[in-house]
Write a protein that binds this DNA or RNA. Structure first.
Lengths: 225, 225
DNA sequence: ATAGAACATTATGTATACAAGTTGTACATA
DNA sequence: TATGTACAACTTGTATACATAATGTTCTAT
């Protein structure tokens, strides 16, 4: 029987670089080079190049021949694209694949959204982000179509980067997110899937607007983006 | 100013192999090897490996370490996945991006659908396929979102392969396709975009069912798929 | 001081050498 | 004959050497 191993150096390099990009440790528009990555990972150029090639295809890197490698930026237009895809996929998933969603897990999320206190400081803020991601991931995990699943994974990475670039979320948006998530989760628990999908659509519009305004404020401070 | 060249050996190899897969000259489940591709292309392993890596990511190839490379198959489940994505993207594109669609070109397609005679033999059948592809491509080209555009491109390749594997389309389905295309095109020309989108949804269901039955018949003849 | 050419540096693109695992075959052995 | 073992012939994974192009620097000439 065939087995596809994924502990190769190429795969390790891919995971490593991808993580650095996702967390913006490799910042948008930052220049990289194969030799730098090679030294950092302690391996040869070949697996590094293969990892870079994969990330280029995912849109996270761009290679300029003989010039270098640059981490893809996230612009206002990208925010629209990211949320357009989310708005297409996430309500669709609720409407079409809700039978695959674990109601037990959904119940736990519902409780968290109802009971969660306002985040205090950095640690709590990270908890909030993680809760947010896990909630949407729970829903998207029910998607059975590989093509859409893969697209969703790409978007989740971009969304992760976007949040880091946007800066600290304001408390009011956190509170609203909790409320909107609770509405979605409760609709799911009641089997009101169409209602859940509609609530998701509204939630994503609000999230997008919040991200846009935060990114605009951030970029006006930083000068350019 | 940065320029991304795409005339590299790696890119040529990618185009070449991808074409061979799309036309099923490299048949589904066929085994390949780097050395074979290297000889066939007359280049070294490195650009071949990079091309293969890209195609693995696109789902057209699978590499089994130390064992070889296999061309991805298309199963009944894949047909459902392909048409699920099409059913999600194409009506959405009509509803959302119709302002980007060239009505002049749409008019030409409409005329073709109304006037096109039934295909006679192989050459005419190829014309029909090309017309079909071009029509859907015209619509999908209006999509502005890179993520969705790329997904659509992947799906178009799979659809191309699927048609080859399915065997010769029966005349009645060709006639129906012409009619359904004409309805979509005319609705577009009348600015009835919601109607066009609905007609597209129906058309895709019919196309999927036709593809499924043809593939079933084909696979029952061929034994396995 | 400034402009331009030669050059050193560094980048990726490509080719090749070597490492390591898988598979099938031939052969020895019971 | 059947079976297991050693080995030869593949495969891809990884490292490295070389080719080529872009860039910044330095030195020279005006």
């Amino acid at each position: 029987m065939p087995k596809e191993q994924e502990n190769s150096l190429q795969s390790q390099a891919y995971q490593y670089i991808r993580q650095k990009i996702a967390t913006c440790e490799y910042a948008p528009n930052q220049m990289l080079s194969e030799s730098q990555l090679r030294d950092e990972l302690g391996i040869s150029r070949t697996p590094v190049r293969e990892a870079v090639s994969r990330l280029v295809q995912e849109g996270l890197l761009t290679v300029f021949p003989k010039r270098g490698i640059v981490v893809s930026g996230i612009s206002i237009g990208d925010v629209h694209k990211i949320f357009e895809v989310r708005s297409l996929l996430e309500p669709y998933t609720l409407r079409t694949y809700h039978n695959n969603i674990s109601l037990e897990e959904m119940k736990e999320f519902s409780d968290s959204f109802h009971n969660h206190a306002l985040p205090c400081e950095d640690t709590c803020l990270q908890d909030f982000y993680q809760l947010d991601d896990a909630f949407h991931a729970l829903i998207m995990r029910s998607l059975e179509n590989d093509y859409l699943q893969e697209l969703s994974a790409r978007i989740q990475t971009q969304n992760f980067r976007l949040r880091i670039l946007s800066g600290k979320t304001i408390d009011s948006r956190i509170r609203d997110t909790m409320i909107e998530h609770a509405q979605i989760a409760d609709a799911c628990l009641n089997g009101e899937w169409e209602q859940a999908a509609t609530a998701m659509e509204i939630h994503l519009i609000h999230s997008r607007n919040s991200a846009l305004s935060m990114l605009l404020k951030q970029s006006s401070i930083a000068g350019i983006l």
